[in-house]
């Protein structure tokens, strides 16, 4: 009862059009496994029937559910560690000097999934910024479900086990029934929005640091380039962009240069490059 060729093609076209995500052939089994709960939830007898019905009568809500189910939301606290260490050791000391007049920094977690990255940034800033400083973190994701989860800021036992030091668990979370909820002290500085990175980006104040990790990998090269160009416009000229460990701008968008940041690397927009800089106004 696996997906037929046309069914797989229907699903992969849908997620490529709506989320620019490329499903490699051979992933039929995975796609079906992910869609079983969706089909069940909408009352279809099985995935085949669910897809047949959707092809007969397009249903945006059901399409959304497919996209939600097929995007990988895998994330964890302080994922890969080094980018967060680089913030504390290198980047924040620098920003503390360069933003001394405004005493405010703005961070973006693009593709924030269930929010762990955004709140890990909040913990990092909470601990590293001198008193009297403010910070603002915006998390965005294409998945309505993920944005809702991130706003709720409640995590299961299994989730808080993943990468979060116990001392920070007890300091920045409180028990909420079976879950752990991020304290309001952190939540008040973090907000989440629905946003498709591959669509034209909405106007936002530029950011000092952008984390956009483990999402470009799902896009083809042309889409990666467009996203990187759009992101450059939202990065302050002396700001920093962090990509996932398997992602780079090299060979995709030469407006960025890779620079060392602690024991890892980050990307900065080359100085003197008009793209972005001029349009930032």
């Amino acid at each position: 009862m696996t997906l037929s060729q046309p069914e797989f093609a229907f699903v992969s076209t849908l997620v490529r059009k709506e989320a620019s995500i490329v499903l490699a052939p051979g992933k039929e089994y995975l796609v079906e496994a992910r869609l079983i709960p969706v089909a069940r939830a909408v009352g279809a007898a099985n995935v085949n029937e669910f897809l047949a019905e959707l092809q007969r009568r397009p249903n945006p809500a059901h399409q959304r559910k497919i996209i939600d189910a097929l995007t990988t939301n895998e994330t964890s606290w302080f994922r890969d560690r080094e980018p967060f260490a680089a913030l504390t050791d290198v980047i924040l000391p620098e920003l503390i000097k360069s933003r001394a007049t405004t005493r405010k920094v703005r961070f973006w977690s693009g593709a924030s999934s269930s929010g762990q990255e955004a709140y890990s940034l909040a913990i990092t800033l909470q601990e590293a910024l001198p008193s009297g400083w403010n910070y603002e973190i915006v998390g965005t994701d294409i998945s309505t479900e993920m944005v809702k989860r991130a706003e709720t800021a409640e995590y299961s036992q299994v989730e808080v086990n993943r990468g979060l030091p116990a001392s920070q668990l007890v300091q920045y979370f409180e028990r909420a029934g079976a879950h752990w909820r991020v304290t309001s002290q952190l939540r008040k500085n973090v907000s989440f929005k629905l946003m498709n990175l591959t669509a034209p980006l909405p106007a936002m104040q530029p950011f000092d640091v952008i984390f956009m990790r483990n999402v470009l990998i799902y896009f083809d090269v042309a889409t990666k380039r467009t996203v990187l160009q759009n992101v450059a416009k939202l990065l302050r000229p002396d700001g920093w962009l962090f990509l996932g460990a398997a992602e780079t701008t090299i060979g995709i968008d030469d407006n960025y240069e890779r620079v060392a940041a602690g024991r890892t690397s980050a990307y900065r927009v080359r100085t003197g490059v008009p793209a972005g800089a001029s349009r930032r106004g």
Partner: peptide, 10 residues
Amino acid sequence: PFTEGAMIEK
């Protein structure tokens, strides 16, 4: 309960 991955991360 913990997953193997979580234990290794810790």
